[in-house]
């Protein structure tokens, strides 16, 4: 039992980047354990996606769908995966971290009575009795080495850390499997889904935030330039208290002691000096980029990357450079 199973949720007709990354994890885990990896497509689009998934370098692609898997629920997906795994014991069973796997993988672990590691960044080693993995703890400030001491274990993996396997290899065999019956919990009913608006991401959730200060000189001058940059980066827009006070942006954009407290991967501070009230709201950001024409601005003291420049030149230039990268 040296093989890895990757579970992909097949509730839409498209593979996502993270599904590809999960396959990348499968390849790494397989390499570490000296085995191969298979893929289980779970959900109504399993058959439709199987051809594409068969090109990801896995051994076998299993497809499972049924009326009860039509709509995702943690209860049904965990039960289906448990049923499959009880017939096919794998060394590691993994999926990309998502809102779904965050809730059904631990449930699955409980059903199978196996240990689990969440949101893994790196595979260190996989032996028959022990898998060693690296994951982030304490808001990503520390890395922890986790040992799963069991012949079977579950893993969710962070998709940004695993490269999709190169396509074009041999096509895997596709094997439909029957879904067990009475999967869905009678106690859970899916009512509806309100799709996220296509606007910029929520400040609290965003990986990247472009934050604007008084130096932008308002909604008729610098702020549109920064908004364009935010759009190119897929970033949320934030602001200092001064900008909100001036009425340039609404209250909900305010970051700082009396506004929102954020900790994105990248915080791009444009035309803001970095008062303590503002720092209190963003100092835990992973990487802080500052663009300000005043080299003495305190924001440079906390910035990882600082650019002393007039934002009216630098921001459009940066936007153009990122656009040309095809970002």
């Amino acid at each position: 039992m040296t093989d890895t199973l990757i579970i992909i949720q097949a509730t839409s007709n498209e593979l996502s980047k993270s599904d590809l990354a999960a396959a990348g994890f499968g390849r790494e885990a397989a390499a570490a354990s000296g085995g191969s990896f298979d893929i289980l497509l779970l959900g109504p689009s399993a058959a439709a996606l199987s051809a594409e998934v068969a090109g990801l370098g896995g051994g076998t692609v299993f497809t499972m769908s049924s009326a009860e898997l039509e709509v995702y629920t943690a209860e049904a997906f965990a039960a289906a995966a448990a049923a499959f795994l009880s017939g096919h014991p794998y060394r590691l069973t993994a999926a990309a971290t998502s809102s779904a796997t965050k809730e059904y993988f631990p449930r699955l672990a409980a059903l199978l009575d196996v240990p689990m590691a969440s949101d893994v960044l790196k595979v260190e080693s996989v032996d028959p009795q022990k898998a060693v993995l690296t994951r982030a703890v304490f808001v990503g400030n520390l890395l922890a080495t986790v040992e799963l001491e069991a012949p079977q274990a579950l893993v969710t993996c962070r998709s940004s850390e695993f490269a999709p396997p190169a396509s074009g290899g041999e096509s895997s065999a596709v094997e439909p499997v029957d879904a067990p019956t009475a999967l869905a919990s009678p106690g859970k009913v899916f009512v509806g889904l309100e799709a996220a608006s296509s606007d910029r991401p929520d400040l609290k959730e965003a990986d990247i935030i472009v934050s604007v200060g008084r130096g932008t000189r308002g909604p008729d001058e610098g702020i549109p330039l920064c908004e364009r940059l935010a759009d190119v980066l897929g970033a949320a827009l934030g602001a200092t208290r001064a900008v909100v006070d001036a009425g340039w942006l609404a209250n909900e954009f305010q970051i700082g002691q009396t506004g929102k407290i954020v900790a994105p991967e990248v915080y791009v501070a444009i035309g803001l000096s970095g008062s303590i009230q503002h720092l209190a709201g963003m100092r835990n950001s992973k990487t802080i980029v500052a663009i300000n024409k005043d080299p003495e601005a305190p924001i440079f003291e906390v910035a990882d990357l600082g650019l002393v420049a007039d934002l009216f030149d630098a921001v459009p230039e940066l936007t153009a450079a990122l656009e040309s990268r095809g970002g």
């Binding site: 590691a117 060693v132 703890v137 400030n141 922890a144 080495t145 040992e147 799963l148 001491e149």
Partner: peptide
Amino acid sequence: RSRVTGFRA
């Protein structure tokens, strides 16, 4: 069966 054995900054 799941243990943290080391930390790294």
